[in-house]
Design a protein around this nucleic acid. Sequence first.
DNA 1: TTGTACGCGTTATCAA
DNA 2: TTGATAACGCGTACAA
Lengths: 337, 337
Amino acid sequence: MKNLKDRVTIYQVAQAADVSLATVSRVINKQGNVTEATRKKVEDTIARLGYKPSGLAQALATNKTTNIGIVIPSANYVYISNFLNGITLAAKDKGLTLTLFTTSHSHEEALTAMEKVISSHVDGAIVFDDELDADDVAKITSYNVPIIVVNNRITGDRIGCVELKYQDAFSAMIRDYQEKIAKHDLTFLHVHNCGRLLARCEKTFVNTNEQLNKPYKVINCDDSYTRTYNEFREFFQTNRSGFFIAYRDSIAIAVMNAAIDAGLRVPEDVEVMALVGTKYSFITRPTITSMSIDMAEVGKRAMYMLIDLMNHELRDKVNHFDAQLVTRNSTLHEMSK
Amino acid sequence: MKNLKDRVTIYQVAQAADVSLATVSRVINKQGNVTEATRKKVEDTIARLGYKPSGLAQALATNKTTNIGIVIPSANYVYISNFLNGITLAAKDKGLTLTLFTTSHSHEEALTAMEKVISSHVDGAIVFDDELDADDVAKITSYNVPIIVVNNRITGDRIGCVELKYQDAFSAMIRDYQEKIAKHDLTFLHVHNCGRLLARCEKTFVNTNEQLNKPYKVINCDDSYTRTYNEFREFFQTNRSGFFIAYRDSIAIAVMNAAIDAGLRVPEDVEVMALVGTKYSFITRPTITSMSIDMAEVGKRAMYMLIDLMNHELRDKVNHFDAQLVTRNSTLHEMSK
DNA sequence: TTGTACGCGTTATCAA
DNA sequence: TTGATAACGCGTACAA
């Protein structure tokens, strides 16, 4: 008994079972056309030799890898983890394996990731990355790999997409606040180069307030809890009130904690909300008002859309999820009930 | 110009460039032994035809996939995301691609995941999954795939491991509390079937208290924020004090919020700490005392160990990370300073 | 420097 | 029901 078996091949199995490799192949793929007796014989020697088919060779022969490429900027955000988790659930359900490509928020890396997606021979891909635009995506589908794009409206022969719509709910929320409460000026926390989603929200913010003819502010902000906390500790020395709208809930929490630690009351003096909420929106005190989309559901949907697309039976190439406003204790919304 | 190019092969490039496919192969792999002129000619036609080498065929021919298998229970925990992120960073650094296998906390799924790891032909694997024991892991290395196991002490010819050690710091913390503060009885929140790490901590907890001859409690608890919160709201109706030690920080936060919402003071009436801390330990108010290991660092280390192992140059097959106690405001530790 | 021919581990098509 | 044999797309000795 050797310690490290060199990979045992279908040929060795065939030889040991005294059949041809074609027969072994039939047994592996349960294709029938095999006597019960020989089937058992083959299966026994497969077990005895510990043979596992090479996915590589199978893929090369069938032109199917049962591999799905996932392109994301990083695995480190909670909402992306949730998204990823939804994908894994759906993928496992269908016996698909996931290959991960991360891009670290750089256009260049995103492009090389797409190259790798192509050469890695995946059967399809799900792309959730703001660095990639329509042209970049078109490039890859010209290689005949079906793609679902998340958070960008792109369609094509082999492209589907799922949109994340914050505009309606966000705009409604702004109107509601301005009409019924309007205690504080609304301030949008702009983050430089932080993706389409935030950019769209900022546009919605500006437009809605302009239409209402209400005052509003946009200030710069870092995409980091600690730095934002420190900046706002400073900020709240002189500014003692406001309504702050942050991208992610950790940023909103940073602002909130800075306010509280500066002796201000939330939501009476300072109101805070997050655009992208996760479960961490409700574990703080006060809890954080946030917009939310169940990213695990988005992941599942994307995966199922991709499977349909691979089978050429995807009817609606554009799906969308609408964000829901969840009012909690960091804003005065509750009062309007 | 056809819309969907069927995969263009090395052979087509060779033909179009009027050279043999061996020459194209040399150009692709930058092996030299090619005239500057023909190299340029080949590269031009590669660009013109949009040729991308098939990773599959390359892998089959070279017996190298540059793919690393990652086995984790789920992508949904923050500390696992951090771990995953560390891995992606190190992997990208080395041009490696990641294939993800999730097991959903079931032994059966873990086993099939290992099967897939084998047939997927990865060059190596990192396994962070409590469902797998030494035998399961041994099975896979007999297929000659190098493995780094996280959070389990397993070694072998092609196996290395990185241990996550909580015992020392946890035991020291218990002694310290019992000797210097001892205001509340210590209660360990037992979660059924929640993995080796928690089990080891529970053992440490019991042993240390036994040695000190101090009273202690172990009570059952769910691994869910909401359920834990609700149960402890109930609990705090009658029990008005205690020191609770939870597995993850979200669970600790659930207990803390339940206490606060029940009108108790933290840490004066109720103390709370988490064994596995993430960044969410410091965004709550009060902040949560927790033990912590930088899981991103663990991921990086595991990846670099694996690379060494693949190159047969891994010296120390056992690495370990020691947890650090970070005292924050949810316990009275600060007072002992 | 370049080309020929074989092998990598499968699947699939045809005969037998 | 079985068994040769040709793909699949590439790397690589070896020969030219």
